[in-house]
Amino acid sequence: MKENYLAKWLNGDLSDEELKVFRESPEYKTYRKIAEVSTRLQGPEFDVEQALEQAKEGRRPSVGKVVALKAYRQLWKVAAAVVVLLGIGYFYVNSLETSIQAGLAQRSEVVLPDASEVILNAGSEVSYRDKSWENRRLVSLKGEAFFKVAKGQTFTVETDAGKVTVLGTQFNVLQRGDIFSVTCFEGRVRVDHQGTSLELAAGQGYQVAGGSFKTFEVAAGARPSWMEDESSFRSLPLSFILEELERQHSIRVETRGVDTGVLFTGTFSNTNLDLALKSISAPLQLGYTREGDKVLLYAQDTP
């Protein structure tokens, strides 16, 4: 007899030959009876319409019937207290925030409950509620991060400046001070910022700095430069560039006679500090000295 022949017999999957052999076996009679009688059984009554009414009222299932047994009165109170405590505990656990930080000159990778990935740039932090993720798909961000959203998932990234709602799959969010920048690399995201709402398609970016905003474009298939160990900027104040330099290289930068409000467009290395300093100082015609983790930038014409 072939494997699981009893299941195949019930399903009418035995060949005539096999069926003949089976019918002649001494056990066959009982098997047939089991098969017959079992179809004439039924479970408890179930009133579909009544259950539907109840479901529509949205009532939560009862926690068992309350039976007024005197001996058990105390037990019910204890049980009720336990339920209340469990409830409080549940909400407490649900409200706990999971927080992940990337320190200076560091990067961190976070996997969200829906398997989306977040890569944090140096000196940044994300937090979210792990336990109640299903109900509250919200990620708070301080600093800069790249989001690679798992297929079909959605969530919102909240920053002090604005919100970014995931409609697509890969994007970068930066929010430090009065700078807020979102770049969409794949799919679409919606940006809500100070009452305006706009959608970014792949290859589009949106940047707010010093109160004015602009959109820009990036090459298709690109990734944020910081993920390639470089930091790139478009018309951002030098003060911000220097802060980023501090974060990436874990150094202190001081300036003398330098206008830190001047706008900088360019790139610096996140791995080689000397190279990075040259990249910043050369186009702005600044000089620099380096002493341990302290860097001084100065205007060339000041003595």
Binding site: E3, N4, Y5, L6, A7, K8, L10, E27, T30, Y31, I34, A35
Partner: peptide, 18 residues
């Protein structure tokens, strides 16, 4: 796996009843 369960179920039911 379901076929296996079904087969085993029938087998034990028969053995019990007989």
């Amino acid at each position: 796996a379901i076929e296996k369960r079904m087969h085993l179920a029938l087998k034990s039911l028969r053995e019990q009843i007989d």
